[in-house]
């Protein structure tokens, strides 16, 4: 399956935030059978597109969460979240899922965005047995998201 990254410049998931997001998505949706994990640039590209359309206040909080997660990583694996082992990241994510309500909200948002970036892609649909739209060729005004979900755009260097 094609998990290459279409060539759209990321606007929100950049630098450390991108690393945190990818490290989290990798554990929220781990590789299974023939399916790759969620921690790929293709997932990040779709999420970044969605973040651009997110209500600004919510987007700000989401991006702040990634920074907080990175710092808190030391409490779960002695290193920042993005550099921790898979087990340590799982411990931190499990704590967030059942922890204080702000952390639960953060985890909920993070999980939803990872899943949005993953389960809206045609290659994933095929692998999970979803046939997709009854009218697959119907055009959408924003061609970028269609290309991202079809993984048709150019491969980033």
């Amino acid at each position: 399956m094609d998990i290459s990254a279409p060539n759209r410049e990321l606007r929100y998931l950049t630098g450390r935030k991108l690393a945190v997001f990818l490290a989290a998505a990798d554990r929220i949706i781990p590789a299974f059978d023939s399916l790759p994990s969620g921690g790929t640039m293709t997932t990040a590209q779709v999420v970044d597109w969605a973040l651009e359309r997110m209500e600004p206040g919510l987007r700000k909080r989401f991006l702040a969460l990634l920074t907080v997660m990175e710092i808190m990583g030391v409490a779960f694996g002695a290193r920042p979240f993005s550099k921790n082992s898979a087990k340590a990241r799982d411990r931190q994510l499990a704590w967030m899922e059942s922890g204080p309500s702000l952390m639960r909200m953060g985890f909920f948002g993070l999980k939803n965005y990872a899943c949005l970036g993953y389960y809206t892609r045609e290659a994933v649909w095929k692998a999970i047995g979803y046939a997709g739209p009854a009218r697959p060729d119907r055009q959408y005004p924003d061609t970028v998201i269609r290309a991202l979900c079809r993984a048709e755009a150019e491969v980033a260097p």
């Binding site: 949005l116 009218r135 269609r146």
Partner: peptide
Amino acid sequence: YFTQREVE
């Protein structure tokens, strides 16, 4: 407009 795709 209705393309039957969640993200769109």
